Computed example of a mutant assay.
Amino acid sequence: MKVLFVSYPHVGLGKGGMARQINFTKQSLERIGHQVFVHNFLMDEFDSYDVCHVFGSHSSSKKVADHFRILDKPVVVSSVINMFGERTIKGRMKNALANKVPGFLTETKLSKLMLKSADCLIALNKQESALLVDFFDIPQENIRIIPNGIDINLSGGQSNTPKEQLVLCVGEVCERKNQLSLIKAFKNIDYDLALVGPMKDESYKLRCSVAAEGLPNIKFYGELAYGSEQMRTLYERAAVFCLPSISEVQPLTLIEAASFDCNLAVSNQFPLQPFLEQGTTKFHPMDTADITKAIAKAMGQSSYSRSSLIEQPTWEGVACELESIYKKLLEVPH
């Protein structure tokens, strides 16, 4: 089978979860015998492809998806709708305005059209599936729930590195990831904090740097290569992994941290996989006192995370589920 992966043009810039999801899915499908190609803007021949698989709901992917429909070929969309927490309210407002005001919020309208015309939508969890039904009027029967897989090449295994009183946070330093609130919480915490991730927003970077002044227990590492020895070492050393995001869909970093047996202190504004719920300490991401309490509680808990991952599928398992969907769609006319 020959599959074309499509996503928004700048998906690779941040080297974040979406780019890794695409790469892991591509590699796993190739390992079970399929040809997978990633779309680029110079492509103009699509006849040889069997399936179009779009990642994300960005309207820039709609033209390619529409072309596959003209060719009577199936279109699958992994929506990755990041509209949890406070973003849910904003999303409802945008959706209402897009529906009622002609020529307003055109991108929202185009995204909705692409999602509604897809032959199958892939949600990462039941909460995202509910958003697709509620916001975009997608029939439930058109949605399949397939969570992200676990990367066996970046997992703690049976590391003997002793845990330290170190809190690790991995992700692009930006408003949505909300590292500023975490830094402010550390004014009342004696543990060490390691912040890993690119800092492309200069204004937010400055605010974080100013907030961290006079706090020698906070260290900015910048962007570290995925799977690098330094990244593995930080995961191995950290007793707690903290994710203070305002919104996420299904962050891969939580799975990675759990595989290294880090206890999890996590924002309560987005869904967690059920098997990660037990023992995870939650907090409101804009309440620094709540963050402080959650980290202290997580630091004092016994380890549980690695054993919980038995329910997490591998990327090969994800690829097999996608293969089944592709084959079924190819059996019916479009």
Rank of each mutant, 00 (worst) to 15 (best):
197 G>H: 04
112 K>I: 12
188 N>A: 15
199 M>A: 15
125 N>C: 14
137 D>W: 10
184 K>D: 03
129 S>M: 15
117 S>W: 07
113 L>F: 07
179 Q>E: 14
170 V>D: 00
142 N>P: 02
136 F>A: 03
157 G>L: 13
116 K>C: 12
194 A>P: 08
177 K>Y: 13
147 P>W: 11
145 I>K: 02
134 D>T: 11
131 L>G: 05
127 Q>N: 14
139 P>K: 10
190 D>V: 13
196 V>R: 01
151 D>G: 01
161 T>R: 11
176 R>F: 08
172 E>D: 08
197 G>T: 08
142 N>V: 08
132 L>P: 03
135 F>A: 11
136 F>G: 01
136 F>V: 06
110 L>R: 00
116 K>N: 13
189 I>V: 14
159 S>E: 09
165 Q>G: 09
159 S>F: 09
118 A>E: 00
190 D>E: 15
136 F>W: 13
132 L>K: 03
115 L>Y: 06
143 I>C: 00
197 G>F: 04
131 L>H: 04
140 Q>R: 11
142 N>S: 14
154 L>D: 03
153 N>A: 11
147 P>A: 12
201 D>T: 11
122 I>D: 02
186 F>A: 04
169 C>G: 01
117 S>T: 14
183 I>P: 00
188 N>R: 15
124 L>A: 13
178 N>T: 05
164 E>I: 06
162 P>Q: 06
141 E>M: 06
200 K>C: 09
118 A>V: 05
190 D>H: 13
186 F>Y: 13
118 A>R: 05
186 F>V: 10
121 L>F: 06
199 M>F: 10
195 L>Q: 02
186 F>I: 10
185 A>C: 08
164 E>S: 04
154 L>F: 12
164 E>Y: 05
119 D>Y: 04
173 V>A: 02
152 I>S: 09
152 I>W: 08
194 A>M: 10
151 D>L: 07
115 L>I: 14
149 G>A: 04
138 I>G: 01
179 Q>K: 08
149 G>N: 00
179 Q>M: 13
150 I>N: 00
161 T>K: 13
181 S>D: 07
185 A>D: 00
179 Q>R: 07
189 I>G: 00
168 L>T: 06
146 I>Q: 05
117 S>I: 09
117 S>Q: 15
180 L>K: 05
145 I>C: 09
131 L>I: 05
